[in-house]
Amino acid sequence: MFKERIEKLGLAAIEGTRSIGRISIFFFQGICRNFVPFVQISKIMEQVWFIGAKSMFVIVLTAIFTGMVLGLQGYYTLVDYGSEATLGSAVAMTLIRELGPVLSAIMIAARAGSAMAAEIGVMRISEQIDALKTMDIHPVRFTFSPRLAGSIISFPLLTALFDVTGIFGGFLSGVMMLGVNRYIYMDRVIQSIDLADVAGGFVKALVFGVIVSTMCCYKGFFAHISGAQAGQGAKSVSLATTNAVVNSCILILISDYIITFFLV
């Protein structure tokens, strides 16, 4: 009984180590294989369109309501201390330092990350990835590299969009609905933000972009392995997609803490 448990633990440790090895090789191949300029640029642009431009609506929608909630909650908390004039600072700092990068990354993981995992997973189970190998086309270059580059470009831009829209959302609820002075709100926003905050937010966005694209493409690419118990059909793709989004969100939150720890 005890021996069996130890064996299971050992097998789990070996599998865990293998997975870390696989994902590391996958990531480095993804980076290195991007340097085939003529072939890759159009594919990277396609991914910037898909990950970036097509996520704008969902980012704007999420950001405006997040900003409005922050304005609302912030106002009723600050008004007790007679500090409602600092609402602009509270909204801007919260968004730029934390909520902007994290929420945009989670929303992109849900929208584009799930699509990446499902699309590559379907390519895997329908032998399209094997077909690439028979044509001497590196499957990681074809599937993952453009998505990684597209995410690295798109995530910081979408985070910036989230921040600006969120601040406007705070303005809507704080200024337009609750009567905070608009000049004081905007003045506080401008005064409280410094370059280090913005840079920190962008560093987070870059790291989250790498995490989401790597995790989602990896799960799809190895859908036949991770979904082995579910067979190598549609079920393995759905399992890969779910795992990709859940793992991405967890890793976003863990890495957010680690980056914040080093930034503050």
Partner: peptide
């Protein structure tokens, strides 16, 4: 070359793009 049982055509590419793929890549 290899022709797969279920063809393994790329469903996001047109017929022309599928055929040209081994050369364009």
């Amino acid at each position: 070359s290899y022709m797969f049982q279920d063809n393994a055509l790329f469903d996001f590419l047109t017929v022309w793009e599928n055929i040209a793929l081994p050369l364009t890549e």
